[in-house]
Amino acid sequence: MSDKLVEIKNTIKIKQTTISELKECLCKKDSKNEHLKSKIVNFTTAQNLRTQVKELQSENEHLRSRVFDFTTVQNLQVQVEELKSVNESLNLSVEELSKARALTEATLRERDEWIFDQCKKMRLLEEQS
């Protein structure tokens, strides 16, 4: 009976050791699980940040195109103003040329009338002679 008692005590010690090892293993697993959970949180956070970065990059590209469009419009407005100035200058030149033409036509009419009058006088003189 004493042998049996010793055997039972050894079995109990082995089971207690096994239970203690299992508890220790369970604690390690819990610790590892917590560590993995924090890794998952970090990974999820990193993924969210990547998504936000991609969205910001897309928005940045959109804003760059808007800036390009705005710059193009500003350049076109400057060109329009320059063309208006050139147009006004050309309109003034056309007015001046029109006045010069009218003056030239009037001068030519006067000259033609003078020549016609001179020819008329010469015919009269010829007829008298």
Results as ranks from 00 to 15, higher is better:
residue 50 R to F: 15
residue 47 Q to G: 04
residue 127 E to H: 03
residue 115 I to E: 04
residue 126 E to M: 01
residue 110 E to P: 03
residue 56 L to W: 06
residue 108 L to S: 01
residue 65 S to Y: 08
residue 43 F to S: 09
residue 60 N to A: 11
residue 79 Q to I: 01
residue 9 K to E: 12
residue 5 L to S: 03
residue 76 L to P: 03
residue 22 L to M: 11
residue 16 Q to S: 07
residue 53 V to P: 01
residue 56 L to D: 10
residue 5 L to N: 00
residue 17 T to Q: 14
residue 79 Q to F: 05
residue 124 L to V: 01
residue 111 R to H: 03
residue 108 L to I: 11
residue 48 N to K: 11
residue 94 V to A: 08
residue 46 A to F: 08
residue 100 A to W: 00
residue 100 A to Q: 12
residue 64 R to V: 07
residue 127 E to W: 07
residue 84 K to M: 15
residue 43 F to I: 06
residue 117 D to R: 00
residue 80 V to P: 02
residue 107 T to M: 08
residue 114 W to N: 07
residue 15 K to I: 02
residue 40 I to L: 14
residue 1 M to W: 05
residue 117 D to W: 01
residue 11 T to H: 12
residue 114 W to E: 15
residue 67 V to H: 01
residue 82 E to A: 15
residue 75 N to E: 15
residue 54 K to T: 13
residue 38 S to K: 07
residue 120 K to H: 09
residue 35 H to N: 11
residue 99 K to W: 00
residue 42 N to Q: 14
residue 67 V to C: 08
residue 43 F to V: 04
residue 70 F to C: 10
residue 112 D to C: 00
residue 62 H to M: 13
residue 116 F to T: 10
residue 3 D to E: 13
residue 102 A to W: 00
residue 25 C to W: 12
residue 11 T to A: 13
residue 114 W to V: 01
residue 12 I to T: 04
residue 90 L to D: 00
residue 23 K to A: 08
residue 66 R to V: 08
residue 91 N to K: 14
residue 123 R to Y: 11
residue 16 Q to N: 13
residue 88 E to C: 05
residue 100 A to D: 13
residue 48 N to C: 09
residue 30 D to R: 06
residue 113 E to D: 13
residue 43 F to H: 07
residue 71 T to A: 15
residue 81 E to I: 02
residue 64 R to S: 11
residue 124 L to G: 10
residue 49 L to M: 07
residue 86 V to Y: 12
residue 63 L to M: 00
residue 34 E to W: 04
residue 86 V to T: 06
residue 28 K to E: 15
residue 44 T to Q: 15
residue 56 L to P: 00
residue 112 D to G: 02
residue 111 R to L: 14
residue 12 I to L: 13
residue 21 E to M: 06
residue 21 E to P: 04
residue 69 D to G: 03
residue 70 F to L: 14
residue 40 I to E: 15
residue 22 L to W: 03
residue 85 S to M: 10
residue 129 S to H: 14
residue 80 V to D: 09
residue 94 V to N: 04
residue 26 L to W: 03
residue 6 V to E: 13
residue 128 Q to F: 09
residue 61 E to F: 02
residue 8 I to Q: 08
residue 41 V to A: 14
residue 1 M to A: 06
residue 75 N to S: 12
residue 39 K to H: 00
residue 107 T to Y: 07
residue 113 E to P: 04
residue 1 M to H: 06
residue 88 E to P: 00
residue 122 M to E: 15
residue 37 K to H: 07
residue 30 D to Y: 06
residue 41 V to C: 05
residue 59 E to G: 05
residue 113 E to M: 09
residue 70 F to D: 09
residue 5 L to A: 04
residue 45 T to V: 03
residue 3 D to N: 08
residue 105 E to F: 05
residue 68 F to V: 14
residue 102 A to Y: 08
residue 73 V to W: 00
residue 64 R to A: 13
